[in-house]
Design a protein around this nucleic acid. Sequence first.
DNA 1: TTCTTTGTTCCGGA
DNA 2: GTCCGGAACAAAGA
Length: 287
Amino acid sequence: MPELPEVEIVKRSLNQKISKSRILNIKIHNKRLRYKLTNSFIQDLVGEKIIKISRKSKYLIFYFSKKILLVHFGMTGKFLIKKSSNKKIFKTSFYYDLNIIPKHNHIYFQLSNGLVLIYNDIRRFGFLKTYNSKKLRNIAFLKKLGLEPFDKNFNENYFSNYIVGKKKNIKNLLMDQTFVSGLGNIYVNEALFLSKVKPTRECASLKKHEIRELIKNIKKILKIAISKGGSSIKNFQGTSGESGKFQQFFYVYGLKNKKCSRLWCKGEIKKIFICNRSSFYCSKCQK
DNA sequence: TTCTTTGTTCCGGA
DNA sequence: GTCCGGAACAAAGA
C-alpha cells in the first residue's frame, strides 16, 4: 500500500522517464476506479505536455500547461512504463516476470517519447482526476491535508499544541491525515516502535521526550524507506515493475509472535486491532 | 463462503 | 458543537 515513501519513489521515476513528453493517446480498459473516470478524461489530457510530476502527501500531481491530473493509488494502484514499440504490451505473457496481472491494467497513456504509461490497480481503490486549474488550494482532497512529515513546522511545538486535551490514541493520531499527511499503517507501526511508544497510548499522556522521539523517528523511517526503494509488501512496485527492499527492514509490521529486535529487550511482538487496522508492537519495550 | 487488506467517510454516542 | 471509535465502502485473492 503506497504511503509517502512509495509515492515519492514513483514521482522521481516518472519525472526521470516521462516529464517533458506529450500524451498522444489514451486507451481506457476500465473506467470504474475509486471514482468513475469522467467522460472528458481522454479529451482533457490528449495533446497535453507533462511539465513535471510532484507529490503532496500520498498524492501525485501531474502538471500540464493549464491543467492538473491528480492521482491517488489507494491500496494497490501502480504505474508501469514500457516501450510502446513492444507489440506484446497487451499480452499476458509479457507481464509474467513482473508479477503484474494485465487484466488490472486500466489505463494506457501513449507518450511522445516512445513510452507507454500504464495504470494498474488490482482493487481499483485508486483514482485519477483532472482539474482545469492549477490552483491546488481549490482541490478538496489536498486542502484538508495537514503538514508533511518533512515540513520544518512539523515540530515539537506543533505536536504538543495539537494534542492538548486529545483523548484519542497516538496510533490514530498519526494515521490522521489532517494532523500529519503521508503516513499509513506500516510506517506508523514502525515509528511507534522506534520511539518506544505503545500504539494505544492516549495522546495527552505523551511526555516531551516521547514527542521528540516520534517526530525524529517518523522522519527517519520515511527517509530510510525512500533510500531502500520503498516497501514491497502488498504489491508496491516501481515503474519498471521492480519491488522495494524496505520490507526486509521492518521492525514490527507483520512480525506477530517474533522476538523484539532490540537485543536487550527479550519481548515479543503482539498484534492487536485499533480501529479495525492491524497494529504490531513490542509488549515489553513500547510503553 | 468468509476473512483480510487500505484510506477515507459517515454515523451515533458521549 | 466537538470529539472519538466503530462500521461501512470500494474489490479481489487466499
